[in-house]
């Protein structure tokens, strides 16, 4: 999966993954893809809800061991 930016939010607890994701997203242009790595188990639901409300699109997610990976296209 191609991404324009990778955000390493591993080890961070709520609310940091969302706060960092928002900041990273603000720096991207519409259509660009942000790849996020997190270990917070709540992030799956958090990001899904945030993406929907912020008007972005979750294009893929994956789980590798403890690490959850998400690819979000900016709306």
């Amino acid at each position: 999966m191609q991404s324009d930016k990778v955000l390493d939010a591993k080890g961070l607890a709520c609310p940091m993954p969302i706060v960092r994701t928002k900041k990273a997203m603000d720096e991207l242009a519409s259509g660009q893809v942000l790849e996020i790595h997190v270990t917070d188990k709540g992030a799956k639901n958090d990001l899904a809800a945030w993406v929907k409300s912020a008007g972005h699109e979750m294009i893929q997610s994956a789980e590798e061991g403890n690490v959850l990976k998400f690819w979000i296209r900016k709306g």
Binding site: C14, P15, I18, V19, T21, K22, W50, A54
Partner: peptide
């Protein structure tokens, strides 16, 4: 403050 920060991240 966690909710406040989350809401701010929700723009």
């Amino acid at each position: 403050f966690i909710i406040a920060n989350g809401a701010a991240a929700y723009d």
